[in-house]
Structure formats: structure tokens, C-alpha cells
Amino acid sequence: MLRIRGTIGDLPVDLTLELDDGDWARLGSQLQPAPMADAPAAAVAPVKQRDDLWQSAQDLLRNAGQLSGLELLDQLEGLAGDASAAKRLLVRLRHSPKVNVASGGDTPLYSWISD
């Protein structure tokens, strides 16, 4: 038995559903997450795009050698297309073992550590 209580607008709702074992099994099967093999290619694309963006961010700093935090954030924003994605990349770079972050006055200096 499943009881649903609440309101719809100003109307009170008190609904009781009686389900047998077969009903519960069908309901449960509908609630199972789809296996990844059945996931559409569009669901995988954002992950690939994030990986490509992360690689591009690393390449940007590697090629520059060293950038101030403000310069790096500005270039990452151009790369990522928006400020929030650029900030996420900057934080990820800050915590990367391939990047050294040093105090540089008003803004930190990000340096690529040679491979």
C-alpha cells in the first residue's frame, strides 16, 4: 500500500494505492537507472568536452610557461566561454601537481612545472 497526502492548490489530497507484488516489480523496473551502454552519445559528449577543455587549459599554461592569475583567468574565460567554467579550470590548475602557484603581489603567479 502506498499513501500520498498533500494538497493540489487549495484542495486536500489523501490518496491510497494498493499494489500487488507484480505492480511493485513493474514500478521498480521503471525506476532503475539505464545502463551506460544504452546512454545516448549526447550524454557522453559533455564529459569529452570537459576533458578537451581541461587539456586545452593545461596546454595554455604549458605554452605560456607562467601567467598571473588575472591573465590566466582572462584567457581561460575566452577558452571556456564563460566566467564560471573559467574559475573551475583555474581552481583545477591550482591543485594540479603540474602547476606551481606562487604569491605575486596582488595576484598569484601560475607556472607550469616541466614534464
Rank of each mutant, 00 (worst) to 15 (best):
S68L: 09
D52T: 07
A34Y: 07
L60K: 01
L89W: 05
E77R: 12
L72Y: 04
P97T: 15
D106K: 13
R92H: 06
L90N: 05
G78Y: 02
S103F: 03
S103G: 09
V13Q: 11
L79E: 02
Q55P: 01
A64G: 03
L89Q: 03
W24Q: 04
A45V: 10
L17T: 13
K98Y: 06
Q55K: 12
Q30V: 13
A64M: 05
S111G: 12
R26F: 07
A102V: 14
P12W: 06
S103H: 09
L79I: 07
D38R: 15
A80S: 11
D59P: 01
L53V: 04
M36A: 12
L53A: 00
A45C: 02
Q55E: 06
D20N: 15
S29A: 12
A42K: 10
G9D: 08
I113C: 11
L17I: 15
A85W: 02
A80G: 08
L19T: 10
S56R: 13
D106G: 15
L2T: 15
S103M: 09
R3Y: 08
A43C: 05
Q32K: 14
G104Q: 05
R92T: 05
T7W: 07
L90Q: 10
K87E: 08
D23K: 09
D21A: 15
D52C: 02
K98T: 11
D115C: 12
P97D: 14
S56V: 00
L72C: 05
G78K: 12
H95N: 10
M36G: 05
A80W: 00
A41N: 01
E77D: 04
D38A: 15
L70D: 07
L60Y: 03
S103T: 13
V91H: 06
G69M: 03
V91F: 02
M36T: 11
I4C: 14
L53I: 03
L79Q: 01
M36F: 10
D82Q: 10
S96C: 10
R5V: 15
L61I: 05
S111P: 00
N100F: 05
G28L: 12
M1N: 14
L15A: 14
T107I: 06
L60I: 06
G28C: 11
V47Q: 07
P35R: 15
G22R: 14
K87C: 01
L15D: 09
D21T: 14
A57M: 00
R62N: 04
D106E: 09
V44R: 08
